[in-house]
Structure formats: structure tokens, C-alpha cells
């Protein structure tokens, strides 16, 4: 009896989380020219329609470029920060660690406003300020994930490398870095997803030229309510699940989350 109740609770919770997503996926295949559930008919035409829309195309490229370049820029900084924070012994270490991860805690809207005001005062170009903001956004996830890997790695193997004749740089490249591969991969995937998915910061800082995909979706929905939006969402869901699977296969989600 108790087992039955537990199973029921699990089923209800899962359906609460998954049902809306499944409904969106279902509506993407409907014939009707508006979002309809349950859908009638079966067609792929909304996927084609979404792919043809120029604003989705350009926004999609912008989002991809933004996610890739912000991750690429943030990674070396995160690596250096993580090594300093884990291996270093200096005053204010904990404070810096908290500060570095603060963009995860401070409300996105506050950061967005702060960056908007600051970049306007400094006269930063709009595409650069968006990139800068996304570097800031992704940095804490990368740092956190790398800190977790570094804490797990054995410092004695670095000592062993030194006694065997390796320089500090050789030790880092040949001994330490390969051990961080899991954390690095997980952190970079997270950073890509976080950047790609972000609305609030992009909403404040993007210009008409640098519209991101979530913003394009948002403004499209304001005036249209056809299933091409559902089709686009379905593609994004599939990509997210695929990357989660890659992560799980490569390193295990537990390791990726830094637990």
C-alpha cells in the first residue's frame, strides 16, 4: 500500500514537471494554424516554417555565436580563478570565491540593469556589451565546476611530477589538466546552455542587430500564436536532452553538477 502511494506521488510529480513540455511537443505536429491541444492531424510543416523565418535564423546564429564565444572567453579565466582559489593560500580567498559565484545568486534583472547603466556610461558597443554580459553570466558555472574537479584531484600527483623532473607548466599541462577534463567539459556545456537560454540579460542589453533566439521567440509570440513556435521549442528541448545525455555519458551528471 505504502509502495503504491509512493509510486503515485512520483508519477504525479513527474507528470507535473513533464506534462507541459510534452504538450508543447505534441502541438508542434498539429495541422491547425494556431496552437491547439490536443492537436489534430500530423504534419512537419511548422518545423519548416520556423526554419524559414529570417528572424529565427539570424537570432539562432547570434545565440549560438554568443554562447560559443562567451564560453570560450570565460573558460581560461574560470580555470585560472579555480586554480588560484583551490590551491592558493591568501587573504580574502573565500570572499573572492563568493564574489565570483555571485552572478548565480543576484537576480538577473538587477545584473542586467547594472550592466546597462554601466555600459551606457562607458559607451561600450552593443554587441560587445552583450558578449561581456554573457561572459559574466557563464563564468560562475565554469568556475564552480572546475573548483569541484580541483578539490577532487590529488595534489600529491603534482608533487610526484615535480620530483620526477617536471616543471610547473609541464605538470599543469601533462598531469593536472587531464584530470580536470570532466569538470571542464561539464562546465563548458553548462555555460553554453546557460548563455543560450538566457532572457533577462539579453532583453536589457541586446540591440536590434544582436537579437538572441529566446528574444526572437518572445517577440514572435506577442503577435503570432502558430505552432512554428512549438516546433522551435521542440528542437530546443531535443538539443537540451541530447547535451544532458552527452554529459551523463561522458562524466555523469553528478560530477557535472559539482556534487
Amino acid at each position: 500500500m505504502q509502495r503504491l502511494l509512493t509510486r503515485l506521488a512520483v508519477a504525479l510529480t513527474l507528470s507535473f514537471i513533464l506534462a507541459p513540455i510534452l504538450i508543447v511537443i505534441a502541438t508542434a505536429f498539429g495541422e491547425a494554424s494556431y496552437v491547439q491541444f490536443p492537436p489534430t492531424g500530423l504534419t512537419l510543416k511548422w518545423f519548416a516554417a520556423a526554419a524559414r523565418r529570417p528572424e529565427f535564423q539570424s537570432a539562432g546564429w547570434t545565440s549560438l555565436w554568443l554562447a560559443a564565444s562567451s564560453t570560450a572567453i570565460a573558460t581560461p579565466f574560470a580555470l585560472a580563478a579555480a586554480i588560484g582559489l583551490v590551491r592558493g593560500r591568501f587573504r580574502g580567498r573565500d570572499a573572492i570565491q563568493t564574489f565570483l559565484t555571485s552572478p548565480m545568486i543576484v537576480p538577473g534583472i538587477v545584473i542586467s540593469l547594472a550592466l546597462l547603466v554601466t555600459s551606457a556610461a562607458l559607451g561600450v558597443r552593443s554587441d560587445l556589451r552583450l558578449l561581456g554580459a554573457h561572459v559574466l553570466l557563464t563564468l560562475p558555472y565554469l568556475t564552480r565546476s572546475l573548483i569541484a574537479s580541483l578539490l577532487r584531484s590529488d595534489t600529491l600527483i603534482e608533487d610526484a611530477a615535480y620530483t620526477l623532473g617536471a616543471s610547473r607548466l609541464q605538470t599543469f599541462l601533462i598531469v593536472t589538466l587531464p584530470g580536470l577534463y570532466e569538470g571542464l567539459l561539464a562546465g563548458m556545456l553548462f555555460a553554453l546552455i546557460i548563455s543560450f537560454d538566457n532572457v533577462s540579460i539579453s532583453l536589457f542589453l541586446a540591440s536590434a542587430k544582436s537579437n538572441t533566439l529566446p528574444l526572437a521567440v518572445l517577440s514572435y509570440v506577442e503577435f503570432n500564436y502558430d505552432p512554428s513556435i512549438a516546433a522551435l521549442s521542440t528542437v530546443l528541448i531535443v538539443v537540451s536532452i541530447a547535451s544532458a545525455l552527452v554529459l551523463e555519458r561522458a562524466v555523469g551528471l553528478r560530477a557535472a553538477l559539482g556534487k
Binding site: D154, I157, D159, A160, T163, L164
Partner: peptide, 11 residues
């Protein structure tokens, strides 16, 4: 040459 308690081999 040094040998450590936790062997410290490169995994």
C-alpha cells in the same frame, strides 16, 4: 626519487 603514501600515480 620519491614514493608517497597514497602512491600518487598519474591516473
Amino acid at each position: 626519487g620519491m614514493v608517497f603514501q597514497s602512491h600518487a600515480l598519474f591516473p
